[in-house]
Amino acid sequence: MLLLAVDTATPAVTVALHDGRDTVAESNQVDARRHGELLLPSVDRVLAEAGLGLDALTGIVVGVGPGPYTGLRVGLATATTFAAVLGIPVHGLCTLDGLAYAAGAAGIGGPFTVATDARRKEVYWARYEDPLTRVGEPAVDRPADIAEQVAGMPAVGQGARLYPQVFTDARDPEHQSAAALAALAAHRLEAGLDFLPPAPLYLRRPDAQVPKNYKVVTPQ
């Protein structure tokens, strides 16, 4: 097994190669505005470091969000195109699940929250029973509106750091790691569990308003 994992759903541009047991190589950068520029060179670097070509891959893993759309699409367009050219499967995973898996590796066991920055003073978030078990679907909300649901629980992800009044026990990891995402995918593949399609979790409709009518130019 050799998986290439990418995730651009958060400010992190993160890429990892995983052989099913261990991370072979990884690249992690945090730059919310340059996903498009940074991703392909990161893939190139990771492969070079491992001394491998894309043709060695058995699958692509991609974080499908939720996340700010423009960056999110960079990873998905890249992953789906790779998979199409190489003729290998692309496995979608919820980005928050990757962070939860990393939280487990960092020693968090019991119930906790994962929250990432959704901008516009909101977070993408989900609650976890344990690092492998999400409670319900990921959502996008104002932190104050979910304060009761997350009270007293540890929380990981940058969204937790941004709103300390709500997430009072913010912990590492702060940023998404493709290595964790790949490890989670390897675990799921081994256990015969399924994946999400490589389609974005937007959670919001596009901002677009149907115009009421054209503006009359003649002074009334």
């Binding site: 893939v43 190139d44 960079v74 367009a77 195109t81």
Partner: peptide
């Protein structure tokens, strides 16, 4: 449109790189 362009550019890069 920035976001629209980025989808094509990302796909083109992946396509060229993989080939």
């Amino acid at each position: 449109l920035a976001g629209a362009l980025l989808v094509g550019v990302s796909a083109a890069k992946a396509y060229a790189y993989a080939l």
